[in-house]
Amino acid sequence: MPTYLSPGVYIEDAPPSARPIAGVGTSIGGFIGVVPNNIEMPTRPGSETASYDVAPAGEPQLITSWEEFKNSFGDIRAGNKTLALAIYGFFNNGGTRCWVTRVAAAAGLNNLADALAAFEPIDEITIVAVPGATSPVQHEAIIAHCTTMKDRFAILDSIEKPASLTPEAIRGGTAGEGGTTPTGNSAYAALYFPWIQVFDPSTEPGSIINHPPSGHIAGVYARVDGERGVFKAPANEVIRGALGLERRLSKNHQEGLNPAGINAIRIFDGNIKIWGARTLGGDANSEFKYISTRRYMNFLQESIDEGTQWVVFEPNTPDLWQRITRTVEDFLLVQWQTGGLFGETPKQAFFVKCDADTNPPQLRELGQVVTEVGVAIVRPAEFVIFRIQQLTGS
């Protein structure tokens, strides 16, 4: 309290009882792909080509449009085709912002450790994709990165042409002595099958080619997040730019894949749609078997973490506990009002507890303040059942 020595009107800044939490972004991509050290590009239409250097290898570049990607990594050419088509699909499907790291052509995608490590300091990345990385070793590296960071989600590409339509084969496993172990389950990843078909403008004349779907699907994630919210499953959505599929799947095919968390891409009335919403492993991932559940929990955790950093070094008193409680409750109330939390009333949808019970003297002596938060997250209506009864005339 300041000391006043003369009569007058004084204005003081009073700290707010609660500080608003702004939800973090949920659809910022992190892409890794092969691009040679220089790209051959025509100097003008119909003219000879000239080479120019691209962005340094191993250094993530912020890309906010297709034009920016071309300036940093070149237009769609043989050397960068897989990555370029994926980034084009990302922006075409609703993506607005991503970080791109290139690896040199000589290195390929055999060792992703350094490229993934370069993403660690970039806190805003929430989706990670390596278009064309289909081996279990590559998948496990991507999954390990997302699991360790705990604030991002992996979109994985299946084998292009698996030997069979079993979950093991689609996840990269091979049978027989010395066979490859398929990619393991993870609540921080989703795998999509089959590959999509897209137009390849780099050939003369342009042709239709099979292409890994991860970049396009990352754009669908961004589109759904923006239009509905991260709590909405990124499924039953059209993949823009997809002209066909490497193979068509039936309902019977999908019944063998869905429980294992293989998300099918299917054709309905000429529309190519994502027809799966599960994390890799599906039923084995218990409460996190749905993509939207895992990603929404990531969103809540990261938003609350960033929105309560002001608490650090504050006096650990009941007044602080009340301010934390109000801050988190206000944020979760907004989430409930927008449809992300389940319950007819806020009390049914969430609770926040920060008091003497969660902060006993021994914890306060350690400099800790503990807040317990519980939420009821909405889950997708994966199986819609209609019971139809016919009545006979009387």
Rank of each mutant, 00 (worst) to 15 (best):
H145E: 00
H145S: 06
C146W: 03
C146A: 07
C146I: 05
T147N: 05
T147Q: 10
T147G: 05
T147R: 12
M149S: 05
M149T: 02
M149L: 09
K150T: 05
K150M: 03
K150C: 06
K150I: 03
D151H: 14
D151A: 07
D151W: 08
R152T: 07
R152V: 02
R152E: 08
F153H: 06
F153W: 08
A154F: 02
A154Q: 03
A154L: 02
A154E: 00
I155Y: 06
I155P: 02
I155N: 02
L156C: 05
D157Q: 09
D157L: 07
S158C: 04
S158Q: 02
S158N: 04
S158P: 03
S158D: 02
I159W: 00
I159D: 05
I159V: 15
I159R: 15
I159S: 04
E160W: 11
E160R: 15
E160H: 14
K161W: 10
K161Q: 14
P162A: 10
A163S: 15
L165I: 12
L165N: 09
L165S: 09
T166I: 02
T166S: 13
T166V: 01
P167T: 09
P167V: 10
E168A: 13
E168Y: 09
E168W: 10
A169T: 09
I170Y: 07
I170F: 05
R171I: 07
R171C: 08
R171S: 11
G172F: 09
G172D: 00
G172W: 13
G173Y: 10
G173I: 06
G173E: 04
T174M: 03
T174A: 03
T174C: 07
T174L: 05
T174D: 00
A175F: 09
A175G: 11
A175H: 06
A175W: 03
A175Q: 13
G176P: 00
E177G: 14
E177T: 15
E177S: 15
G178P: 01
G178C: 02
G179R: 12
T180V: 15
T180G: 03
T181Q: 10
T181I: 14
T181S: 12
T183K: 11
N185A: 13
N185G: 00
N185V: 11
N185Q: 13
N185F: 10
N185S: 13
S186I: 04
S186M: 07
S186R: 11
S186E: 03
S186N: 01
A187N: 07
A187E: 11
A187K: 15
A189I: 06
A190D: 04
A190T: 11
A190E: 08
A190H: 13
L191W: 12
L191V: 12
L191S: 06
L191P: 04
L191A: 07
Y192R: 13
F193H: 11
F193C: 01
P194I: 04
W195M: 05
W195P: 00
W195G: 01
W195R: 08
W195L: 01
I196M: 08
I196G: 06
Q197Y: 10
Q197F: 08
V198E: 01
V198W: 14
V198A: 12
V198F: 12
V198R: 14
V198S: 05
F199T: 12
F199A: 13
F199P: 00
F199R: 12
F199V: 09
